[in-house]
Design a protein around this nucleic acid. Structure first.
Lengths: 225, 225
DNA sequence: GCGGGTTGAACTGTCAACAATTGTCGGGTC
DNA sequence: GACCCGACAATTGTTGACAGTTCAACCCGC
């Protein structure tokens, strides 16, 4: 069932990459924090080589930024970067929506409805990382779009969105509107209307962006107590 | 004038990256060829570390593909991958065209006209890498779009296009049509019509894609003798 | 007290040797 | 003659040590 090579031995670098990525995405290494090669190496009980490799890789994914001779940091985004990020996201997911409307099968539509409902249930039951269910819906849309490169690029952008959300709270009113957007998207895709699908996605993403911007520059204690 | 840190000492890994990237993009290491760590290391008179780092970086740019325990190869594209690549390119440059139409200044338009004319002159005088002048025009458009992340992503896609072109000939008839597309694009951008600009870019890119596909699966000797 | 050079700890950048894996080339067997 | 199997060669994966850079605390003369 595996379509690609499934090596018995996964390299240390690869395993380190996955662990480190999750440490960043969950906020355990928070934005602004420094990533130390030797510290991670001793923590994982390996040498600096694989750790270094993982760090460089995450840098190319945009989850870390590198300063020569000074190490890697988890980036702290400002409003300008959020705007830039969502311009990219709109370009990619707007086009993906177009393709989804043109290429979706009945099974795709069923799957989208399932994920949409799942996201709604997750939000209402107060899960730990509710926005990951939102991204799961978007993943279903990408599946329907059948454009492998656009898909992989969107995944990278989504990681950055997850990183942003480690430092922003979830707004219930916003979430509800977002979930409604999802349903409208499914309608447009099922109807096979690429322009409507793209426009609906655009509106949706601008809503998400604006919610993020609302909380971005607040001091952290604003939603700790 | 430099806006970022300008370190006196550029690391070996960084210099190796730039040299190796150019070796791939010029076709000196042709698609299908294997890249050997020790061979490059001895060739550059350095150790494997920086070479390895450069290879991994180029892998993340899509200029090399990695097979575990078996080294890195310059990818050989098939028709399916070209389609996927141009779906991504249309998404990115379509949106960039929209922004360019909305945000361009008079200076941007002048610069676009200059690059368009420059590309035309270059093609007519039979330069060595004529398609790089095409990409230079596209670079001017990105400047007018003022969307830093979309810009950097387009650059990565353009590198892949350059790689493709190392193994495909230039078709004069196609080039002429492409240059005309450029002029139509400048018109739409100057007129401030985002939808027309995006649609014109779409048409242009599909033309470029189809030219590449025409020559893609021909045996190499077809344009050597 | 206060600026400016100095020194040193903490890091990243680089290297050369060692370990592990993969594909190949034999010889041997059915 | 086709197939399996084991040693070998080539190459990547990993390691620990060394070199160079950066930053900050410290010292010193003023």
């Amino acid at each position: 069932m595996t379509n690609e090579a499934s090596p018995v031995h996964v390299s240390l670098a690869e395993r380190t990459l996955q662990v480190l990525r999750e440490l960043v995405l969950t906020g355990e290494i928070p934005p602004g924090a420094r990533v130390n090669e030797v510290e991670l190496a001793t923590r994982f009980g390996i040498s600096r080589g694989p750790v270094r490799e993982a760090i460089r890789h995450l840098t190319s994914e945009g989850l870390l930024v590198l300063r020569t001779n000074r190490g890697a940091y988890v980036p702290k985004a400002d409003a300008e970067q959020v705007h830039a990020l969502f311009e990219l996201r709109v370009a990619l997911e707007g086009e993906a929506s177009r393709f989804a409307a043109l290429r979706r099968t009945e099974a795709d539509v069923r799957e989208l409805r399932r994920r949409s409902a799942n996201a709604r249930a997750g939000f209402e039951s107060g899960r730990r990382f509710p926005y990951r269910l939102d991204l799961d819906f978007h993943g279903g849309l990408l599946q329907a779009a059948r454009s492998p490169l656009i898909t992989s690029q969107v995944h990278l952008v989504q990681q950055q969105v997850i990183l942003l959300r480690t430092t922003t709270p979830v707004d219930p009113a916003h979430s509800s509107a977002s979930l409604d957007d999802h349903d409208r998207l499914v309608e447009a895709i099922e109807a096979g209307d690429p322009e409507l699908a793209a426009e609906t996605m655009r509106v949706h993403l601008h809503r998400v962006r604006d919610q993020l911007l609302t909380y971005l520059d607040l001091p952290e204690r604003a939603f700790l107590g």
